[in-house]
């Protein structure tokens, strides 16, 4: 019953069971922690409350960091920056990438040619290099990190959406809608978008994971947010030197960060696997109708992890 309700409000099937469900619940819990964490922190962020690298004890659940500040409070605070920028950046990525890919795939012509060419140029640079260049040019801040998330993954997403749109555009019901004289906006909104939705959403989890890795990586390298901000990526690099004194100062934010990326990975992996299985089942059922040419499967079966910077 519950599952049908979830399905009805648009939750993909892969997230209602097994690892997909576990991953989704973990993501929600960590996001809730990141948002509510700052309210729960028992100590001030920027003031020393104990000796440098003091081990955990009563009232100081995770010990003290390299400046004697409370690790527990800073960990509660530190999720909001990384997760906020990553989730916001991933949303922005889809808000830009999906329209771009749909327009390129549906319009064709020079719009398509320019989009594909631009995507190829961006793909000619390793993702992290692109992010580093942006940081070099603009300096590190939340907005720049968000831009990095969008730009490092935009070319891959745009190409994926474009390919899916091309495929959908040649389907009979889309051609029928066009032949009826429906406007491009209607055809895209009612026929193309619903058709390509599963393809687009299949690797959303993996893109979220890539986003977190980009953001946390730049913060860790000291090129993103600046101290004294409490941020998981930044905390790991700041406290590496005192890992012999109080390992929790680096490992606690690290563990939460890893939990988030692993959960995002599980969600992405499950939805990608479910999608492949559904496709295979559909194709077997449809017999030769879906095409026996093995290259037919190439665009969607390509590994979605390519976007990893």
């Amino acid at each position: 019953m519950r599952r049908t309700t979830l399905r009805r409000i648009g939750v993909p099937r892969s997230l209602t069971r097994g690892w997909g469900l576990a991953g989704a619940l973990t993501l929600v819990a960590l996001l809730a922690l990141a948002v509510a964490g700052p309210l729960l922190a028992p100590h001030p962020l920027d003031e020393p409350v104990a000796d440098v690298g003091q081990l955990p004890g009563p009232g100081l659940w995770l010990g003290a960091d390299q400046l004697g500040r409370d690790v527990f409070s800073r960990t509660l605070h530190g999720g909001l920056t990384t997760l906020g920028v990553s989730v916001g950046g991933t949303l922005a990525l889809y808000l830009v990438g999906v329209p771009l890919g749909v327009v390129a795939g549906y319009r064709g012509g020079w719009v398509d040619a320019v989009t594909v060419r631009a995507a190829d140029v961006l793909l000619a640079l390793p993702g992290l290099l692109l992010a580093l260049l942006l940081v070099a040019g603009l300096g590190g801040s939340g907005g720049v990190l968000l831009l990095c998330v969008v730009l490092t993954q935009l070319p891959a997403l745009t190409r994926l959406v474009r390919t899916a749109t091309l495929e959908a555009g040649s389907r009979a019901f889309v051609e029928a809608a066009r032949a009826r004289g429906e406007s491009a906006v209607r055809v895209v909104g009612f026929d193309v978008l619903p058709t390509i939705r599963p393809v687009i959403l299949a690797d959303a989890g993996l893109r979220l994971r890539s986003s977190v890795i980009v953001v946390a990586g730049l913060n860790f390298l000291g090129l993103g947010l600046h101290p004294p901000t409490a941020d998981w990526g930044l905390m790991i690099s700041e406290n590496r030197d005192i890992i012999g004194l109080n390992p929790w100062a680096a490992l606690a934010p690290g563990a939460l960060l890893a939990l988030f990326t692993v959960a995002a990975n599980a969600v992405g992996d499950e939805s990608a696997a479910t999608r492949t299985a559904t496709r295979t089942a559909a194709r077997t059922a449809a017999g030769t109708a879906a095409g026996t040419d093995p290259t037919d499967a190439a665009p969607t079966d390509a590994d979605p992890r390519e976007a990893r910077p």
């Binding site: 990586g217 690099s237 690290g254 960060l257």
Partner: peptide, 22 residues
């Protein structure tokens, strides 16, 4: 390998350092 793929490289490095050095 799926789990390992989700780990940022700086985290793997930090864990290795804390185990094999510290």
């Amino acid at each position: 390998t799926i789990a390992a793929a989700a780990f940022p490289e700086f985290l793997v490095a930090t864990v290795l350092i804390s185990v094999f050095f510290d």
